[in-house]
């Protein structure tokens, strides 16, 4: 194994470059090093001007999503040796405006997220103790509660690229996380946004969101499942008189 590997890192400094350019750095190639360790080596020892987000370095905070050799990944959970002998091409997440180097603007997601009301909705006062929920009922939504908001699914989704109004995989999965929670009564409140043209119906099931998801959330599955729910509701609304729905 060679003892170094070349990282080609996309640089974009507003005012300095009109569009991103690649800059190459040689970094030590070590078995334990994630792509993020390579970037940290560059920032600490070679070029302090390189900007990127990172925090927990254990794949749970969702900060360090990047495009590595064309695929959206968490750079803390993707290892340099998997790309040996290199070069490793590191770019910002696709489908987002680039703020600087590897930092993207996720404001669009942050603005859309509240629109699907991803919180527990109940009309009544909570009980004295806990809401009862069996392990089976927990399993019904558990998978969708694993989303770390890392944005890899948005980066992988060609529909989001073509139609930025699309609510998107993570937000819909989080809406489903609450819809499928036995404690929640807010499905009707979420229906308008989810059933809209920018909601589940914008999805054409490319499935890349679920492939890209580092936490096994399966947003594509969440969306397909909601399509069935939405279709059933539309049919009911059409067929049944108002009182019987």
């Amino acid at each position: 194994m060679a003892d170094t590997i070349t990282m080609q890192v996309a640089r974009y400094r507003p005012g300095q470059e009109a569009e991103p350019v690649f800059q190459s750095y040689d970094v030590p190639l070590r078995k334990e090093w994630a792509v993020l360790d390579g970037l940290n080596h560059i920032k600490d020892h070679v070029d302090g001007t390189l900007s990127y987000r990172w925090s927990c370095r254990m794949g749970i905070c969702g900060s360090c999503g990047m495009t590595v050799n064309g695929s959206p990944v968490l750079s803390c959970a993707t290892f340099l040796t998997d790309y040996a002998p290199g070069p490793v091409r590191v770019e910002p997440l696709r489908n987002f405006p680039v703020v600087r180097d590897l930092v993207v603007d996720i404001g669009d997601f942050m603005a859309k997220l509240p629109s699907v009301k991803p919180w527990l909705i109940r009309d009544d006062e909570p009980p004295e103790g806990e809401y009862l929920q069996t392990p089976d009922e927990l399993d019904d939504y558990k998978k969708f509660s694993m989303c770390i908001n890392c944005m890899l699914c948005y980066s992988a989704c060609p529909v989001y690229a073509l139609d930025p109004a699309f609510v998107g995989p993570a937000a819909i999965a989080l809406a489903q996380r609450y819809n499928l929670d036995s404690r929640d009564e807010g499905a009707a409140d979420r229906r308008d946004v989810l059933s809209s043209a920018e909601g589940v119906w914008a999805c054409t099931f490319v499935g890349e969101c679920s492939t890209a998801c580092p936490k096994g959330v399966d947003p594509a599955g969440a969306i397909q499942r909601y399509k069935l729910t939405a279709a059933t509701h539309a049919l009911k609304d059409f067929l049944l008189p108002r009182g019987a729905r």
Partner: peptide, 26 residues
């Protein structure tokens, strides 16, 4: 001052899944 990458006309050739997606739309 953010940079928005234009979508290339051949984006659907970049991944097999994108290609399949294009075929299915077609």
């Amino acid at each position: 001052m953010t940079y928005v990458k234009p979508i290339s006309t051949l984006w659907w050739l970049r991944r097999p899944s994108y290609f399949l997606f294009a075929l299915r739309e077609l």
